[in-house]
Design a protein around this nucleic acid. Sequence first.
DNA 1: ATTTACATACCGACTGGTCGGTATGTAATA
DNA 2: TATTACATACCGACCAGTCGGTATGTAAAT
Lengths: 199, 199
Amino acid sequence: MTERRPSSERRIEILEAALTIFVKKGYSEARMDDIVQEIGLSKGALYHHFQSKRDLFIALIEHWMDQFSPIERGGLMRAKPSREIILHIAKFTAKLFKRNPNWFLVEPEIWAFANRDKEIKELASHLYASVLSEFEVLIKRGIEYGEFRDVNAGMIAMSIMTSLHGMIWFALFKPNDFSLEEYVDLNMELILDGIAVQD
Amino acid sequence: MTERRPSSERRIEILEAALTIFVKKGYSEARMDDIVQEIGLSKGALYHHFQSKRDLFIALIEHWMDQFSPIERGGLMRAKPSREIILHIAKFTAKLFKRNPNWFLVEPEIWAFANRDKEIKELASHLYASVLSEFEVLIKRGIEYGEFRDVNAGMIAMSIMTSLHGMIWFALFKPNDFSLEEYVDLNMELILDGIAVQD
DNA sequence: ATTTACATACCGACTGGTCGGTATGTAATA
DNA sequence: TATTACATACCGACCAGTCGGTATGTAAAT
């Protein structure tokens, strides 16, 4: 028998294994047995911690959201211009991506699932809404302080987010001509320069 | 019995039904019976035209590629500046999207599949490479004619493409605050203004 | 301290429905 | 009459979820 561990720890261990498997095989092709094998646990154990495959996937999304919310923008950056903060977030995201691409590579899986499952769609919408609003606030702040032109903040926020989503495509089809960092930098500069007040 | 039709026609009819079902349920959750039911055909008929589910999916991607390649940029536009042509392509793509979102909504499904199937990855890579190179040529042309700054053309091409991919996210999570057209216009302007030579 | 009682963590053989694919036949077409 | 386009009945591998059971805590009662 495997060493007993408290549920809180074991759940996370399972979620991490699930992430690996879901990314590698996709939700539908992923077998509960695959996940269990990944950590040398039994199926019974898995179903002790999670009610169903779908339940496991939802827990995964929630866990995934938790990984990103405490990026803790703020603190030391409060005084800086919005441009700097947004650039910092973008670079930070790229770094996160490099360290753990799986967190991002599940996203298409979430999208696909959201397309056929209302509850998951709610969850994902909620997640994206919070990301968008974070950027929107920064843009509005920049407009207020005369840093940016009077643009549609929500729209720009979307541009930023979809640009970052481009990383996923990038990782999937690895065009080996250029680097991820270049890509992110260029995109952010295009957007940020584009909305900056001319001098 | 259903009316008999020549294979060439029936194949397309099946591919269109398959597209609908694959988008609605995702590849793995899509049942061959669903597809067959969609057009009131039999399973035997389907397997007469396609060898397997995977084969059907590959045929779908190829059919999908055919829909886009003959967009026939060129002809009347040949004299125009690259900026105009790119804008036109973007608007045209947005229009296509509005008319038949399914063509775009399969994309995440293709990505997910590519992630676990080498042949499909090849196919998709090939497709994206041709799209990218089309944009790249336009950018380089713009640089040559003094329309754009001396930027990394391949990189900009990628920015344009991932921006257009943003439409997919847009369609999935429909932020009802703004329109698809606005989104595309804004993104293209940011990129094109960003690389234009200053005056 | 030892028993009793209950809780939590885990095991793995088993099942029942599902679904991609096949075998075989029939009617239209060339 | 050979071939093509379809229909119908069927097969069997596969896998999410179940369930009877074990092992290891933990804490109150004796």
